[in-house]
Design a protein around this nucleic acid. Structure first.
Lengths: 270, 270
DNA sequence: TCAATAGTGTCTGTCAGACAGTATGTG
DNA sequence: CACATACTGTCTGACAGACACTATTGA
């Protein structure tokens, strides 16, 4: 792949010098972020409460406009740092783009959605037009037909953000199956029990402990042993202190660790 | 998920009546299509030769601007029909969005890329500024480090289309593992040998015939038996006439059919 | 009968599910 | 000691890889 931009292709410099943009429709482009973490054993998402119309008072995914000189990825990283007040070092990946013509009643907006994963972040600070920003356990949002059904008091999300968040959850649930992404949810060093709690929270069902250990430890490069804690970091006293690990270099799991049968439907993009 | 657009949220109608768009950066939004099919046992992609600057004379993915009233999905379907001259009935899915600020030297363009799969399409007809449109076996493009290396005469693609096509190929290769997508590449009715040739072409290595049969036939809803051909459609004479099948309703494969070890690296989004 | 393609049977190793058991720490 | 947590062993069934085998057609 040779460079796309201002390269030396025959006649092109002259062409570009005389080029005037045609009248193509103009769009505003935003990024929306599904920032996920595990808090208190629950998969949680960062939501802001909107101060302004439209959808004033509704909960929404944090996000903002892409600026002239930046890519969507740069805009997502910038918004993430504005929202959390610190450089973001976790996992950030593009989810998909939402472009229904009437998804924003103000104007034509195309939104490029991202998923971010992080171990326990500092409590977020509000910014921009967000009146409030906090973590919500996803089960309190009643997005998917999870056991227990939609909580009666489940808040409604602004725009098409319920759909975006639903897609983000499906992406993360399925990526835990065939990647080592789970380890991005925990602080280092971590124990195998910590890592297993990530799967339990994301899949809403804990894999069998012994089988989980066998799989994780036999996957070369998933996690790296780090020694035993002098007297374990947290946790209630009592019990044998666990071995500690950090993230390894492996990215993919082969073969994958499939989640239990439930929640495996709904095709959707990978 | 209740409707995003012109709903009756308190105070919003008044707000929208007085709303004037702020000065957010304006972007052109395009769709780019990686249209894939199997031709002569080779995975092939539809490419156009550009007539205009920039990248005049280069090969490019077909695509075009998203219009004011349509979603990216609608634009992709429209371009596909313009390009092939018929209503497109195959599989079309969003790949990802490319937004590097300098990916197009003319102006700021965000491109939403799609992957389309179809059984042998009519030979394409050129349209728009495409001087020529034809199928290219992907192995002739030398995109990935495939055995044989990059052909000396491999053409260079315009813009960042080599990257987009590379991502599209990885998407399709991996989706064959855990979905029934392969069946979207063949005309109905088809034989098991036809279906296996799809895997052989996409993965560049044929799964063992007996194991392949066992897997496909034991996956309920992957394919449906359709009876035996009176005297097989095509193929060289001689040999036992095969059973015929059509696509079933199943979408996902559980557990997946993993491709052989090669080509399973390069993390990349799902 | 031969060539060619379709289709079957079966052995083997790998691995996940299930679950019972052992080890090592604290009070 | 009891108790809690960490960790191990092992039986079983499902399934993929490998490959030898049989079946059915046309020439």
């Amino acid at each position: 792949m040779t460079g796309p931009a201002g390269a030396g292709r025959p006649g092109e410099t002259e062409f570009l010098a005389g080029y005037r943009p045609g009248d193509y429709p103009a769009f505003a482009v935003t990024v929306d972020l599904a920032v996920l973490t595990i808090r208190g054993g629950l998969l949680s998402v960062l939501l802001v409460r909107r101060g302004d119309h439209p959808f004033a008072g509704y909960l929404a995914l944090p996000g903002g406009f892409v600026r002239s000189g930046e890519s969507a990825e740069q805009a997502a990283a910038r918004e993430l740092e504005e929202e959390t007040g610190a450089v973001f070092s976790g996992h950030l990946e593009q989810l998909r783009t939402y472009s229904d013509p009437d998804r924003d009643p103000r104007m034509r907006v195309v939104s490029i959605a991202f998923v971010a994963l992080a171990p326990r972040l500092a409590d977020p600070r509000p910014g921009g037009d967000a009146a409030e920003a906090r973590w919500w356990p996803v089960e309190d949002l009643g997005l998917d037909g999870r056991p227990g059904g939609r909580p009666a008091d489940a808040p409604e999300l602004a725009f098409d953000h319920a759909r975006i968040l639903g897609d983000a959850l499906e992406r993360v649930r399925s990526k835990l199956e065939y990647t080592t992404l789970a380890a991005r949810f925990v602080d280092e060093p971590f124990t195998l029990a910590d890592l297993r709690r990530v799967y339990a929270a994301v899949w809403d069902s804990a894999p069998d402990l012994a089988n989980f250990r066998r799989k994780v430890l036999s996957t070369e490069g998933f996690i790296v042993e780090q020694g035993r804690s002098g007297a374990a970091a947290a946790g209630p006293a009592g019990g044998r202190p666990p071995l500690l690990y950090r993230r390894g270099h492996a990215v993919l799991l082969h073969p994958p660790m499939l989640r239990p049968a439930a929640g495996r439907d709904a095709a959707g993009p990978p």
